[in-house]
Nucleic acid binder design. Structure first.
Lengths: 269, 269
DNA sequence: CGACACATTGAACAGCATCAACCCAGGTGG
DNA sequence: CCACCTGGGTTGATGCTGTTCAATGTGTCG
C-alpha cells in the first residue's frame, strides 16, 4: 500500500490548532504508515495493553470507553475523522481505556516510536500534539459537567451539538444534519442513561423541535435554540488557532473570595 | 522573596513520572517565581481568562470546577501538592474551567512564557509535562466512569481511594488517614450528589466499616476492602515511571469483534 | 451570647431505571 | 419467495436511588 496524502484530514485538524509548516507535514507524511479498515465494533486500542503503533482516524467514527467492575460501560469520548486515537501512548505505558470503531472506520497506523521521534523533534509538531491533547482533556471536563449536572434531555442535545460543531470545524460539512451511527443504547452509554430513557428523551427533543431525526441522521431545525437549551458553549472545544508565543498581559494579584454570592465564576451561558 | 528549592514537591512528582536530570531541575529552579498563600476559596485560575503565569501547588489542595448554565457546580478534579495547576495554558488560549484553593493553599507562581520556553527547550521537561497532562486526562476519564456508572456509595469511596493513593505516591504519607478539607456539599459537587445524600452515604460507608471519619480526616480500617468495594484500580493513575523510549513488541492485526459476549474488554476489577 | 457555616435527620417527591412486551426492517436459509 | 431470526426501536407499568424542602443540632468565632 503506497503512502497517499491521506493524512490530509489530520493535517487539516492540526493546522486549525497551530501553524504547521510544509516541512512538518512532509515529516509526518514520510513516516511509515498503512491504512486499514476496521469493521463495526472492531478494537483499535485495548485497555491494559501498550500498542506499538498509533492510529489516526481517517474516516468514520470511534469511541473511547471504560467498563466498571460490574460491567457497566461508560463511553468517554467520540472521535471523528482527523483525530489521533492513541497519541497518549507516546507518553503513557499502558492504555487505561479502550477504543473501538463506531460503524466501519478507516485508520492510518503509524509505528509509535517513529511517530514519537518525529513529533518530539519538531517543535511545531510537539506543540500541535500537546494542544490536541489539551483539547481532548477539555472535552473530558465538559463531559463531566454534562453527565454530572445536566438532565437527560440536555445531555443528549449537548452531545449532538458537540459533534455537529466538531464536524463543521474540521470542514466535514453538515449543512443538512449529520450521520451518527450510534444505537440508542450507545447514546445511553455516552450519557449515562438507559436506552429506554434515551428513546423517550429523543422523542421529547423531537416533539419540542430541538432535533429532527431520519434514521441515524440528526438535523437541527433551529441550531441556536438547541445550543441555548443544552447550555452548549463551544469555547471548551478551543476551535481557533492556539497562539504559540503569547505576550503576557493579565496580572495576577491576590484575589480572595468566598461567601455566598460570588463563590465561583460563571461557566457556560 | 528568594527562590527556595521549594519546587521540590514538583520535582518529586515529575521525577516519579520520568527520569529528570539535575540540569532540568536547575533550569526549573532558575525560573523567576514567587510563592504565595491563597486563602480558602481563593481563585487561582478563572474560566474565560488567559493567565500570564502558571501556578504550581506547593501545599494544600485545589479543585478544578465548571458551572452549568443553571448554576450547578461540577468539581472536575482535586489537585494535591506538587500538581501543576494550569500547565494547560502553555497550550490553550483561554481557560475553560476555574481553579480554586480548597482550604488554605500555597502556590508557586511562574511567568507562563518563561516556563513554556524552558519546558519546550528541554526534552526531559517537555516529556515530563506531556506525561503529567496525559495522566490528568486519564483521571478525568476515570471520573467520567465514576460519576456515570457507580452508585453514591462507591463514588465517594472511589474518590477517597484516589486521593489517598495519590498522596502516598507523592510521599505525602498518610499511614493514619488523610485530611481532606471538603464540606459535604463540595463532596457532592465532586460526585454529582447532593450534600444530603453525601451525608447519608458517608454514614453508610462508616457503618459498614469502609471508612472512618474524624472531622475531615478520613481513614480506611481495611483499605483493600474499600478499594475492592469501590472498584478502584490504581492503573489509571499511571503511577510508575513512564518509559521514554520503548521497544515495540505487540503487533497490530485486524481484530474484528462484535456480538454479545466479548463486545468490549474489561476495565477495573 | 449570637451569628454563621456546616452536619444531620425526616418526609415527600421525581427522574430515571428496570422489567417486559411488542413492533419493524433487514438478512438468511429452506 | 416466504418463514424465521435478530438487532434495534418503541411503549407501558412499576419501583428505586437520589432530590428537594425543611427543620434541628453542633462547633467556632467575634
Amino acid at each position: 500500500m503506497l503512502k497517499p496524502i491521506l493524512l490530509q484530514v489530520l493535517f487539516d485538524k492540526l493546522d486549525r490548532l497551530v501553524d504547521l509548516g510544509e516541512h512538518d507535514k512532509a515529516a509526518l507524511s514520510a513516516l511509515p504508515q498503512h491504512h486499514k479498515t476496521i469493521p463495526t465494533g472492531g478494537y483499535i486500542v485495548r485497555e491494559g495493553t501498550k500498542p506499538d503503533y498509533c492510529a489516526i482516524l481517517l474516516q468514520g467514527y470511534a469511541i473511547r470507553q471504560k467498563l466498571s467492575a460490574d460491567g457497566k460501560r461508560q463511553i468517554l469520548a467520540i472521535q471523528i475523522a482527523g483525530d489521533p486515537l492513541d497519541a497518549q501512548h507516546m507518553f503513557l505505558d499502558c492504555a487505561d481505556h479502550t477504543v473501538q470503531a463506531l460503524g466501519e472506520a478507516r485508520v492510518a497506523i503509524i509505528p509509535r516510536h517513529a511517530l514519537q521521534t518525529v513529533v518530539m523533534s519538531r517543535p511545531a509538531l510537539t506543540h500541535a500534539f500537546a494542544v490536541n491533547g489539551q483539547v481532548d482533556a477539555s472535552i473530558f471536563r465538559e463531559w463531566l459537567l454534562n453527565i454530572g449536572r445536566r438532565d437527560a434531555r440536555k445531555r443528549l442535545a449537548h452531545l449532538f451539538c458537540e459533534i455537529a460543531v466538531r464536524l463543521e470545524a474540521n470542514g466535514q460539512s453538515t449543512t443538512d444534519g449529520f450521520y451518527l451511527p450510534m444505537s440508542q443504547e450507545e447514546l445511553g452509554d455516552a450519557t449515562s442513561l438507559t436506552s429506554v430513557h434515551v428513546n423517550r428523551s429523543l422523542r421529547i427533543l423531537e416533539d419540542e423541535g430541538f432535533i429532527a431525526r431520519n434514521g441515524r441522521t440528526i438535523r437541527f431545525p433551529d441550531k441556536a435554540a438547541t445550543m441555548k437549551m443544552a447550555g452548549f458553549d463551544p469555547r471548551y472545544l478551543h476551535l481557533g488557532r492556539q497562539s504559540d508565543a503569547v505576550i503576557a498581559e493579565s496580572v495576577q494579584n491576590g484575589e480572595s473570595s468566598r461567601g455566598a454570592g460570588d463563590r465561583y465564576g460563571r461557566s457556560d451561558a
